[in-house]
Nucleic acid binder design. Structure first.
Lengths: 200, 200
DNA sequence: GGAGCTTTGTACAGACCTGTCTGATACTGT
DNA sequence: ACAGTATCAGACAGGTCTGTACAAAGCTCC
């Protein structure tokens, strides 16, 4: 314990260490598969601290999924901010997926995976429902902003492409589906009727 | 159908009862979530019989996924046989998805769900890999049979649509993505170059 | 009837899992 | 210096899980 004098790396709080360990273990190996003991061992945290801080595994799972949601929202938003054209914004989402898929530890969408092992009403299920609401809102707003005549239909199509890219990338362990989905998104956009050409 | 209707009920073999119970429980609630005791209770089979017949839970999981694979292959084949045109065959797969999604107990693709909670090298992982091989072969052969100039690209696109329909239907609990994906598949086909118009 | 395979019922071992409890030890603000 | 909070370390209770063991009973086919 000589680190106190050197402020180089002030050890993260037990909470942050638990969240980091949860994120890695839950995402890589599944939520049910990983036990509390694995998490606290990786985090270097006493079991009592976990229950002191979070109250239980369910709340830890909630925090894990909440953080995943926030981080991904932030990443997508960065991609949207980088372009101006409304239609280009929709395609930018698939570019962000591409960089996500290329990460060596990519193992699919955390919410799809959580749903696969979750029972209705579980914290996983609730978090996934919130995530789905956001995804639909995202594409819905982008479609409306672009002036799509039938924004709902366009959004539904993009959601299917988004989900397909995720699933294919996970199942086949390749980043290629991001480009494949983007290509199809361009096809869809080309076949969509827009009201205003570019009103901003 | 019934072998003998004279006595009360010619109970199916312990093996078949175990498979039926596994199919229902594993698919509805997840493989890790469901314990052996739940399976044998639902099947009305002694625990010793399960180990006598299958040898362990892993082999039961393998058999469960194998049966799912066979059943779905059969269903898809029926859909293919119902139409003649090569391009229509591709679209027919999405129609089959539609009837699948409409079933009240639909809870996503069994192999995607199994992958979500499986570690690399597990029986689930191996079964999923086989399933993925079949899916790619299916669309690859249909694309070649239709005379697509770039059959691989077309097949990759259809796989993403297939996966997207499955995932969206599961996450949003609606059968609509089957139609949405089929519509996009038609767009994709319209944008694809085919060599021969109709050589059979 | 009898041999051999299948099935049953139940008890049990060993591992693992979540969660609780306790008592000691850091850290932090006043 | 002191109070309050955060954290640690480890033991333990109660439950569940997979898998094993064994004795008895059914079933099938010759």
């Amino acid at each position: 314990m000589a680190k106190t004098s050197a402020p180089s790396t002030p050890k993260p709080s037990a909470r942050d260490r638990l969240l980091a360990a949860s994120d890695e273990l839950f995402y890589n190996e599944g939520i049910h598969t990983v036990g509390i003991d694995r998490v606290i061992e990786k985090a270097g945290v006493a079991k009592g601290s976990l229950y002191y801080i979070f109250g239980g595994k369910d709340q830890l799972i909630e925090a894990y999924l909440f953080n995943r949601h926030q981080a991904w929202m932030h990443t997508v938003q960065q991609g949207l901010d980088a372009v101006d054209d409304p239609q280009a914004k929709m395609l930018a989402v698939f570019d962000q997926l591409g960089t996500l898929f290329a990460q060596p530890d990519f193992r699919g969408c955390a919410f799809m995976n959580a749903t696969a092992e979750a029972l209705p009403g579980s914290p996983e299920d609730r978090a996934a429902t919130k995530f789905r609401g956001w995804i639909h809102e995202l594409f819905g707003e982008l479609a409306r902003a672009a002036g799509a005549v039938d924004a709902k239909t366009l959004a539904d199509q993009l959601v299917v492409l988004y989900d397909g890219a995720n699933t294919t990338a996970q199942m086949d362990k390749t980043a290629a589906p991001a480009r494949t989905a983007k290509t199809m998104a361009q096809l869809v956009l080309a076949a969509t009727s827009f009201a205003a050409p570019l009103a901003d």
